[in-house]
Amino acid sequence: MTQRLPHTARSLAADLRALGLAPGDTVLVHSSLRAIGFVAGLAQAVVQALLDVLGPAGTLVVPTHTTFNSDPAGWRNPPVPPEWWPVIREQSPGFDPARTPSWWVGTLPEIVRKWPGALRSDHPQMSFAAVGAQAGTVVRDHRLEEGLGEASPLGAIYRLRGRVLLIGCSHDRNTSLHLAECRQDRPVMTDYGAAVCLPGGASRWVTWTAPLADSSDFAKLGGAYEESGALAVGMVGDAVARLMPQRELVDFATAWIRCFR
């Protein structure tokens, strides 16, 4: 069924306010633009709606991950021949926060990444971009071995008592749940690799060890969290949206993973 009128930045802002998003909030957004429906101005209008609601004291955060910049030995979709691996490691352009596009995180993060005044963390795989009053606090000091841990934008949002907003997507895309994995007493560790950009434009392959990011049970975890009632559910355009306090979410997830994994 065709929607009666196009959604607009103004109508989406009204939906976001009705959901509970407020001026001054720091909010990490995961979204499906397709689920929202037709918007006059497309993704740009969605970002504008978020910023209009947050106001000058608020901060919009999005994942700008670049998981293609990883060790080809672990690629499965699709795999590449072993004889390609050294070429990819040695010849891939290093991650550059200003130039390297995000990948597999949707259209909206790319719009935010390029927004005037946006800042981006410098992690070669798990970067985040932010616009607003707390952008510098959110993206700075993103340590290589802390892609989704305490010394990452996720940890910064936790300390800022920020919020998580899922628009038209489920908890399997709720990146904050990875912070709970990193907080386990004995997290499962794995090796990572990526190309990083050096001063002057050359690149270098680096490796590090960090907790394994495993979202396979996040839908179940998110469902258990929702039973606690500590979130707001409503419509943003045609999409079901969920707004929740990130600190309470991560605390719940930390305990849940300890018990059920």
Rank of each mutant, 00 (worst) to 15 (best):
A49M: 13
A73L: 13
L54M: 12
R89D: 13
V87E: 09
G20E: 09
L54F: 04
W104I: 09
Q48H: 12
L33E: 09
L54D: 07
S70Q: 08
V62H: 02
A40Q: 04
W84M: 14
R113P: 04
W85G: 01
R17P: 12
P82S: 08
A13V: 09
V105R: 02
G74S: 07
A18M: 13
L42C: 11
L60P: 01
L51A: 10
L19I: 07
T107G: 00
V27T: 08
F38C: 02
W115K: 00
H65D: 06
W75F: 15
L16K: 05
G37T: 11
F95G: 11
P79H: 03
G106S: 13
P109V: 07
G94H: 00
W104C: 12
T26P: 00
G37A: 10
D25Q: 01
L33Y: 03
G41V: 04
T67K: 13
I111Q: 02
D96Y: 06
L19K: 04
G58W: 01
A13G: 14
P79N: 06
W84S: 15
L19N: 00
S70L: 07
P81M: 04
P82Q: 07
G58M: 00
P93Y: 06
P116E: 09
S32P: 10
T66K: 00
F38E: 13
P116R: 05
A45M: 07
E83Y: 10
P93E: 05
P79I: 03
A73C: 11
S102Y: 03
